[in-house]
Amino acid sequence: MQFIYLVVIILFCLGLYTILMNTNLIKIIIGINIMDSSLVLLLVALSYKPAGTAPIIDKQYSVIVDPIPQALALTAIVIGASITALMLLLTIKLNRYYNTLDISEIRRLRG
C-alpha cells in the first residue's frame, strides 16, 4: 500500500519531463494529462483506510473510508478534461497559422 505514493512521484516527474523536453505540441498536452492523473491518484490514495468499505450507507458498517477527498477528486477530473479541450483547440489554430507543430519553430518566428 505504501508503493502507491512512490508511483505518484514517478508519474508526476514523468509528466514534467515530457513537458520540458519534447518539442511536439500534442506530446506536451499528453504530459499535462499524465500529471493530472497522478494528482487524482494521490487524492484517492489518501482517503483509504484498511478494511474499510465504500461510502454508501445502506447497512451498518464498522469502518467507512473517508468521503471528502473523493469529492475533490471528482471535481478535479472534470476540470482537467475541459482544460485539455481548450488546449487542443489552441493547437489546431496554431497549426493553421504557422503550419508546424514544432514549438522551437514557433518561438523563432516572432514579430
Binding site: I26, I29, I30, N33, S37, V40, V44, A45, S47, Y48, G52, T53, A54, I56, V65, Q70, A73, L74, I77, V78, A81, T84, A85, L88, T91, I92, N95, L101
Partner: peptide, 29 residues
C-alpha cells in the same frame, strides 16, 4: 481502493471524451 464514484467518472471521461478530442486534433493537424 473503494471509490466507485471516482471510478465511474474517470471511465466515462478519459475513455470517451478525451480520447475522442485527441483523435480529432491529430487528424486535423
Amino acid at each position: 481502493l473503494q471509490a466507485p464514484d471516482v471510478a465511474l467518472a474517470e471511465v466515462v471521461i478519459a475513455s470517451g471524451i478525451t480520447t475522442g478530442f485527441f483523435i480529432i486534433t491529430i487528424d486535423k493537424t
